[in-house]
Amino acid sequence: MEFDANRPIWLQVMKALEMDVITGKRRPGEKLPGGRDLALSCGINPNTAARVYQELERANLCETRRGMGTFVTEDEAVIAAVREQFIRQTIQDFLRSMAQLGETPESAARMILKEEA
C-alpha cells in the first residue's frame, strides 16, 4: 500500500478499510485480518495497525469479539450512515472545487447531467 507520508498513516488505512466495507468488498460480519496481519500486509507499524482498529471500533464500524478477532459490524444502519457520510464528504469536496471555478451547485448539477447524457 502506498501512503501519503504527510498524513497520519492509521487514517489512510482506516479510510481504505471503510471504503472496502461501504463498497461491499468486505461484507457485514466478515472477519478482518488481525492487527499483526494488517501491519504485515500493508507494511506498516503494528502500533499503527492497532490504532486503525481502535478508530474503526470507535466509529462502530467493526467490533472485536474476545478471542475471536475483529469483525465488520452487522449493523447495516451503521454501514449506511458511513456510506452516506462518505458520499456527502465527496460531494462537498467536489462543490468546493466547483466554487473555486466560479460554478454554483445548480450549474454544477446541470453539467453533471449533461456529462451523463
Partner: peptide
C-alpha cells in the same frame, strides 16, 4: 510519528 503527522501534517522525511 503519527502524532507529528496529525498535529503538524509533517512526514518523517519532511
Amino acid at each position: 510519528l503519527e502524532e507529528m503527522r496529525t498535529r503538524q501534517g509533517v512526514s518523517m522525511a519532511d
